[in-house]
Write a protein that binds this DNA or RNA. Structure first.
Lengths: 203, 203
DNA sequence: GTCTATATGTAGATAGAC
DNA sequence: GTCTATCTACATATAGAC
């Protein structure tokens, strides 16, 4: 048992409760930052939701900015953002549309991303590096995929892979903002599909 | 002279100084909200920039949210957003690219718009109505223009005017965000041109 | 119109008892 | 690990003198 605890300290071990607490805090902070932003959301709001005092919360995350970074990284693990796709044979169009529809169903995921991303360009915002890095990685990743499509003769003539990558990311982010303000007037997946079908030729 | 004052009360009239003050406050608030957001920017910051006390500032704008609305409307008048184009004969592509290049040169205009737009989707944000209305008007306006192009046989087959409108707006907003975080890596006007040339056929 | 003074509220973070 | 109490800072807004 003791050896088992040592090899799997997360479950039933001495740190089990601590890990659960951290998880509960991350979930609560996700909701608060999504609904009110980083500057607008308070540690007290988060503590109230998880049912603990604000000072106890700071025992797990030593400062508000630490909590923000942890929430952003946790978001990646929830949405699968940046990780390998479930099906390596899945095409780019299907992968994008599946992700878009998935995000739409998880309450708060799009709010969190949209609100914090724009907020991160403000002075002294602790999330700025996260978003700068994310965009750089995303642009490179999509550029590679469009370049591969071009080699396969499936990218429309005149479309630059780099431009298509930046365009897809920008379109995705922008349509999410419109959707947040008017869900009934915007079809996120349909808009993305419209662009991708414009530049990607059928097999 | 008195009749002249009555017909043009803004210049040299009794309210001339007051109007100048309001203008100076709007410019300062524009900078502050662009750099720190609505929640992150304080009235004290604005007052310091314009060289007056925070309480004197509230003499011109009775509350922080009133100041925000005034800044948003003032922004429209600076950028010409929503007003009639300078040249009615100017094509859609030229108008979009000219506006994009113009905004890029006015420091803070894109920051203000991007930061406040996303922030406005948060709980109880006073700018929400402004942005909801703006998107609705923009979508309708661009939909009309694309529909006209379709009637002229200049819209690519299969492109829906409504989808193209939402796509153009989303792309524009999204590429601005990427540009704010990495100006050297993003070509705003080039990206917009790439999309428009994809869906609009040459005359 | 402009200011000082202040009311009132809230924030993030620390100290230290238990 | 959790709490109460508190520190320090800063916010928006009001009252009222000049």
């Amino acid at each position: 048992m003791t050896t088992n605890e040592a090899s799997r300290p997360v479950r039933r071990g001495p740190y089990a409760k601590s890990a659960e607490r951290r998880h509960a805090i991350l979930a609560a902070a996700h909701d608060v930052f999504a609904a009110r932003g980083y500057r607008g959301g308070s540690l007290q709001d988060v503590a109230d939701r998880v049912g603990m005092s604000q000072t106890s919360l700071l025992h797990y995350f030593p400062s508000k900015s630490d909590l923000l970074i942890a929430v952003l990284n946790w978001r990646d693990s929830i949405t699968g953002d940046g990780s390998t796709p479930p099906d390596p044979e899945e095409g780019l169009v299907d992968a994008v549309l599946r992700q878009a529809r998935f995000n739409e169903r998880i309450a708060g995921v799009i709010e969190l991303y949209t609100v914090l991303c724009a907020e991160s360009v403000t002075e002294g915002h602790p999330g700025r590096e996260y978003f700068t890095d994310r965009f750089q990685k995303l642009r490179r990743s999509y550029t590679r995929r469009f370049r591969q499509l071009a080699e396969d003769g499936r990218l429309r003539d005149g479309v630059e892979p780099e431009v298509a990558a930046a365009t897809l990311i920008a379109l995705w982010d922008g349509i999410q903002t419109q959707w947040l303000l008017a869900p009934e007037s915007v079809d996120m997946a349909g808009t993305l599909r419209g662009y991708l079908e414009l530049i990607i030729l059928p097999e």
